[in-house]
Design a protein around this nucleic acid. Structure first.
Lengths: 232, 232
DNA sequence: ATTACTTGGTGTAAAGTATGCACAAAGTCA
DNA sequence: TGACTTTGTGCATACTTTACACCAAGTAAT
């Protein structure tokens, strides 16, 4: 270590995590309301310093775990942001991640870095300024999700284990910000063969009940390992 | 700054740059031969610490400039690598970039971090161990290039200003690691309308000379801004 | 000058994929 | 029993992708 100039150790490295959820036909992001300087009162992405003996992915997973209690969640690194002036208190470089969670099954905890955390509808954030450069990070992560979902069926990470085709379609429409044709969507999804008809029906709805499906992870993994493409 | 724990400033942040070139039907990478510990004698990616007042992209551009003298080169951030043990002398997190340069027009300079630098054929690196986790970084960057080239016509960055369709096809074949059909390739490339027939011919070849083309950047930018897809 | 050699340049038919579109079926509720 | 809501389904057409083979234009050697 002796030969390294100490100057290069004046930079802090953090992780920020864009946690996506889906509920009632809306994409949501888990944000924290900042209590302290800088940017008190603004929404911000949950994030924290990377510990000395911690891998970067592990730091992202820790943030998510502290906030939601969830483990083994879908997590993907997106890009690193390090503009010189992005943090008013010093040089802070941050590695951005997004994660996909099944919202409705778990509530949000307070934690060391989050006095209050809340699910915010993504469309409602269009005109809200976030702390730091978190607008830019959120946008980059949403774009990454949009791209990823065209190529891997990761949408299932956002749905409960049993879902209807209409729910799945609404999810894709929310992510892609586009309307999809019902018949064509179903034809395509079913032909890909990752989802299994459970021969069960929805209950408690005031109309014809929909069939329930589940995601077949093993079929999907076979497909992926053979190299393939998942377009909608 | 006072409220930050000093512990979080014991991490160094670097940039590593996978510089791709193309010559004589082969994809090449610009590597440096390490002279000092750790890993003396091994090939490594050119990289350096990020300076205190330097943006991350600027650091990547600087490394490239010091090594090749080139400016305004295509540069793209790929991913950040920060496994706890990746650097034997301390915690060093590195942001990986790739760049695309027109090899044959510029020679390689020595520089502060590179006693000797050399263009190495990518296929020949298959079984060569690089310093640190640079194998992994190189692989990630090559995969990023592979993906990117399917969606943006960045291949032109690797060719001289005037090129033949056969050269272009060889480039795509090298990047995609696949053979392409000559007629279908030409039909598709020409229908995309980014390349312009210069009505000139190759000279000094011992066979029918090929027509020369150039890339029309303005047409391409129009296309991109309208949102589109470039598949081969 | 003729011939051999090498690479350049071109079109079509068939298969597969994507798109657009409308109506009967299965439930609940009053 | 009828009104209401959402589910579930098929086909015809346009578009895209793939597979495939031969003549043209130059150089080099005799």
């Amino acid at each position: 270590m002796a030969e390294f100039s100490q100057d290069f150790f004046k930079t802090a490295v953090t992780v920020d995590n864009v946690i996506f959820g889906f509920d009632e036909s809306d994409l949501k992001v888990l944000l924290i309301k900042r209590g302290t300087e800088p940017y008190p009162g603004l929404w911000a992405l949950p994030g924290d310093f990377i510990y000395a003996q911690e891998n970067i992915d592990a730091a992202a997973a820790r943030i998510l775990h502290e906030l939601t209690g969830l483990e083994r969640v879908y997590l993907e690194q997106v890009r690193t942001f390090g503009a010189v002036g992005r943090h008013p208190l010093g040089r802070v470089i941050t590695v951005a991640y997004f994660s996909l969670v099944k919202t409705n099954r778990h509530d949000v905890h307070a934690s060391s870095f989050a006095q209050s955390a809340e699910w915010v509808n993504l469309p409602e954030l269009r005109d809200v300024a976030l702390a730091f450069d978190h607008d830019e990070i959120l946008e980059a992560c949403f774009n990454a999700l949009k791209q990823r979902v065209r190529v891997r069926p990761i949408g299932f990470e956002l749905l409960p284990p049993k879902f209807t085709l209409t729910e799945l379609q609404h999810l894709y429409e929310a992510i892609l910000e586009a309307e999809l044709d019902k018949r064509n969507f179903r034809k395509k999804i079913l032909s890909m063969d990752f989802i299994v008809d459970l021969n069960e029906s929805q209950e408690g709805v005031a109309h014809r009940p929909a069939r329930l499906y589940e995601f077949d992870k093993s079929k999907y993994e076979k497909f992926v390992s053979e190299g393939f493409n998942f377009e909608l």
